[in-house]
Nucleic acid binder design. Structure first.
Length: 901
DNA sequence: TAGCGTAGCAAG
DNA sequence: CATCGCTTGCTACGCTA
């Protein structure tokens, strides 16, 4: 089984930006190709040749068999489709809204576009012969040119010029490697980024080359240079664009980055994750040595923690601030800004961490000045590093990271009181020496007591107490809140349950296990019961006995609950895309995958002000959760984003009421992954013997490509026949739909298939059942921005009727002048509404049907204005809509249809 | 009764 | 100016097969 190190090939575009031949293949084609190579059926071409000739395996291997009688069958298929349509339409006439109908469409790869491309190549040839373009010796010999968007001169004229002068006119950007030049007059930013590695030039390149009768250097006509110059602001009219430093608009592409850069909580979380990862790394590295086994009750632990870490470090970095005299707080602002950390002088006035600055100001006497310091995240890291270095140098058997400023250190034997004293003092003086900050230390023979003694030791001190020394007097001064795992909510529960406010730990110790469990639940009750006796519960002790499992990452998530203000679902979609990208990048670097995604949406409470008192804060919100199982682990941003967007819609939160978003991935178990799962879940595998048989020169390349795609090489797979197990395209297609839609499609297929075979009665029963279900579903989810709102076109909401209408419209206008502008505008609006509602399958189906229609009429009307107009509509209106959601577009890419225009 | 999805909580 | 309310993991609880 090959390892899965970080993929070196990720997005690695070579000069010229061409994808390598292997990269351009779909998984199936790749596997097919490998197996053929292995059997010597396909000639392994040298790199150069492969690049230029670029055999379309998809065509060679899979099309050929079907090609012959495909055209003949086409009309028949179409009729059959229509019949099915009618049958369903009939059966569902009374349902009124059959919006969720999808049909078992064959989205096979031998599609309109391939047929079309073939035909057009042939046409070009005819054209060239007819008008006597140079056979060889043409100006554009060897150039494959693609025209993007509106140009001047127009597409048709350029097409003619290119073909007549020996060039190849590329109609669709299906495999980007096939294109040598792209001609465009203007490109939107997104496109520019996408195509930045291509030779993109203005149409004048073609015109001028023909004029001068030689191929001019394309660089002189580079579109990007021209556009960059055009976009540069005039120096006097516009003020210099400031470097955007503080982006607080969540619609801005760099919002996440900016927000995180300033968020203390984000820093705390990621520091913690880093520390844990680092710990694991070391732990595994050292596991060749005898691993530090902690025997039950035979250890000493020190819980070590900085005194008001942020405040101390920030004060150290600021001259004229004395942490022992001035009341210091660390915060961003002056009013509704959270206090991240305050020193003990400030605490004397009742100021606490988490309090708003405005509140703190009120607590301070008029003659005292509250010192507000800003965060210095870099310095926090520096101090923390020094801190952990000290701990490592002290040669504890275990240094368990709790957070940036806090650690639990373990000695795997019981130390005498004197030894404990010495150790505590040693730690404190060493840290003070290296960081100029004070830490406090709690020391005991259990984790929980170390934690409690630490509380007592603060600030700037240490305390030692063993389980046997624990008595009433120690507990008397402590509150339930001091127990680990007990927060405000549990305190309230306990105080209510025991009718004692405030509640003392000494009192609580007297209550029975049973009583505690009734109050807070089984496990928590037990945990508190044990803690009051100085003992660790099993869950907490795991940290000592099996730190590896405790520190192993089990989930990955992103939470944004500040600055979230959107107006439209598109903006939210974009935001989801960015969040997903952020997470999948991490997934990639962790080399892990997810198969369960949870979306949490924070929605403004009905009675909460639009703008809460905290600047850009979330205010009071209602949370909504939705989780989805993918069935197959993935790290593909496209698949994941589709899923999340779908979940978002199903929660029906109006865009303007959104105040927070969280996306969480449950991670696959690291040990089970890749071996058992791959086989169980039918991920494609390449047989090791097949791989071994590959010619040497290709083997390495193929190996890298397989790794990039996370396709395993299996020694176990059957040596002989099917070299891989790849699911059908239909299945693949389904895999990439949002689960919710997928379920509907599946359901539909099942019903259609069954209805074909079974008796009328059964069919009706099914339909009744489904109607019922659909009704319930609908009742549940009807709301703003729901995906289930009926979408109208020409006063019609039934999709099958709409399809009929559109097809009639297409048919009726092809022989003439094409669609009327007004009609087109209405159609465009309808498509937008579909797109807004994420009704991808409907859009796909519509696109596919129009494409098929054009295909059918091509022979007869191919040269008519109407046909060409419609072709333009397909390429510039319909398909770009599918492209708009790049993530869903993936589905399409896999099918080898390229919807780029 | 196990397993699932959702919600809530605590921690730093 | 404001302000940067994250992220992980456990537990409880209600529901359903």
């Amino acid at each position: 089984m090959g390892g899965y190190e970080d993929s070196p090939l990720k997005n690695e575009n070579g000069a010229g930006g061409e994808r390598s031949f292997l990269e351009s293949l779909s998984d199936d084609s790749l596997l097919n190709y490998i197996s053929q190579l292995s059997q010597g059926q396909t000639q392994a071409l040298p790199q150069k040749q492969r690049e230029s000739q670029r055999p379309r395996l998809s065509q060679l291997v899979e099309h050929q068999e079907k090609w012959g009688d495909r055209d003949k069958d086409h009309d028949k298929d179409q009729d059959k489709d229509q019949d099915q349509f009618e049958a369903q339409a009939q059966a569902q006439q009374d349902e009124g809204q059959d919006q969720y109908q999808y049909r078992d469409q064959e989205y096979s790869r031998d599609d309109y576009f391939h047929d079309k491309a073939r035909q057009q190549l042939a046409q070009d040839e005819v054209f060239r012969e007819k008008y006597g373009g140079g056979k060889g010796g043409g100006i554009f010999d060897g150039c494959s040119i693609y025209i993007n968007g509106f140009t001047r001169p127009g597409r048709l004229q350029l097409h003619e010029m290119i073909v007549l002068h020996g060039g190849r006119f590329v109609h669709y950007m299906s495999a980007k490697g096939q294109v040598s030049h792209i001609v465009a007059s203007n490109l939107p930013l997104k496109k520019r980024v996408e195509l930045r590695n291509y030779k993109v030039c203005r149409p004048e390149w073609i015109v001028d080359s023909i004029k001068t009768k030689r191929l001019l250097p394309w660089q002189n006509y580079s579109l990007f240079q021209a556009q960059d110059q055009a976009q540069r602001p005039l120096p006097l009219l516009l003020p210099p664009v400031p470097v955007e430093e503080n982006v607080v608009d969540c619609k801005h592409p760099h919002f996440l980055e900016q927000f995180f850069a300033h968020s203390r909580l984000h820093h705390l979380s990621s520091w913690k994750a880093d520390l844990r990862a680092h710990f694991l790394e070391k732990f595994i590295e050292n596991s060749s040595n005898p691993p530090p086994q902690v025997a039950p009750n035979q250890f000493t632990v020190l819980h070590i923690d900085f005194d008001c870490f942020f405040a101390s470090v920030a004060a150290l970095c600021t001259p004229d601030v004395d942490i022992s005299v001035d009341p210091v707080v660390v915060c961003h602002g002056t009013k509704s800004s959270d206090i991240a950390s305050c020193n003990y002088v400030a605490r004397q006035y009742g100021i606490r961490n988490g309090m708003w600055v405005s509140h703190a100001e009120k607590l301070i006497p008029a003659d005292v000045k509250l010192v507000r310091l800003s965060y210095n995240f870099d310095q926090f890291e520096v101090k923390s590093k020094a801190f952990y270095q000290v701990l490592h140098d002290l040669e504890f058997q275990l240094v368990l990271p709790i957070s940036i400023d806090e650690a639990v250190c373990c000695v795997t034997r019981r130390l005498s009181r004197e030894q404990c004293e010495e150790l505590c003092q040693r730690v404190r003086s060493m840290v003070a020496l290296k960081t100029a900050c004070s830490v406090s230390v709690g020391c005991s023979d259990s984790l929980v007591l170390a934690r409690l003694t630490l509380k007592r030791a603060k600030p700037d001190g240490y305390q030692i107490l063993t389980q046997s020394e624990l008595d009433q007097s120690f507990l008397t001064g402590l509150k339930p809140r001091d127990l680990p795992g007990v927060g405000p909510s549990l305190v309230d529960k306990l105080e209510t349950h025991f009718q004692q406010r405030p509640l003392d730990l000494a009192q609580l110790q007297e209550s029975s296990l049973n009583s505690l469990q009734r109050c807070v639940g089984e496990k928590l009750g037990n945990k508190i019961y044990l803690a009051l006796r100085g003992k660790d519960d099993e869950e907490s002790a795991k940290m000592l006995y099996d730190p590896q499992s405790v520190f192993q990452r089990k989930s990955l998530s992103i939470d944004i609950n500040w600055g979230v203000r959107f107006d439209t679902i598109h903006e939210i979609d974009q935001f989801i895309d960015r969040c997903t990208q952020y997470l999948t990048d991490k997934l990639e670097s962790l080399n892990r995958a997810t198969s369960q995604i949870t979306l949490r949406v924070m929605r403004r409470c009905k009675d909460e002000a639009i703008e809460p008192s905290k600047y850009l804060g979330m205010g009071r919100c209602d949370p909504f959760n939705r989780s989805t199982r993918l069935g197959v682990p993935t790290s593909e941003p496209g698949i994941i984003a589709t899923e999340v967007k779908s979940s978002f819609r199903s929660l029906g939160c109006p865009p303007r009421d959104l105040r927070g978003i969280a996306i969480q991935f449950k991670l696959e178990d690291v040990r089970k992954r890749r071996t058992a799962l791959q086989q169980q879940l039918k991920l494609p595998l390449v047989d090791a013997s097949v791989y071994e048989n590959l010619p040497q020169d290709v083997k390495k390349e193929v190996g890298q490509e397989l790794k990039r795609r996370k396709i395993g090489i299996s020694k176990a797979a059957k040596a002989a026949s099917p070299a891989f197990r790849a699911s059908s395209y239909e299945e693949r297609f389904m895999q990439e739909l949002p689960t919710q839609i997928r379920q509907e499609v599946r359901n539909d297929i099942r019903i259609t298939k069954k209805a074909r075979k079974t008796k009328l009665g059964e069919m009706q029963e099914h339909i009744l059942k489904r109607q019922e279900k659909a009704k319930n579903y609908k009742a549940h989810f009807l709301g703003e921005a729901s995906i289930f709102e009926p979408i109208q076109f020409q006063g019609e909401t039934r999709f099958k009727k709409i399809i009929h209408m559109v097809l009639e419209w297409v048919d009726g206008t092809i022989p003439g002048e094409g669609p009327h502008e007004h009609d087109l505008h209405l159609f465009d609006k309808y498509l937008n509404r579909l797109s807004d509602a994420n009704r991808l399958p409907l859009m796909l189906r519509l696109a596919k049907l129009v494409a098929t229609r054009l295909d059918l009429r091509c022979e007869k009307y191919g040269s008519s204005n109407g046909f060409q107009e419609w072709e333009k509509v397909l390429l510039t209106v319909i398909l770009p809509k599918l492209n708009k959601n790049k993530h869903t577009f993936q589905t399409v890419r896999k099918l080898d249809i390229d919807f780029d225009t």
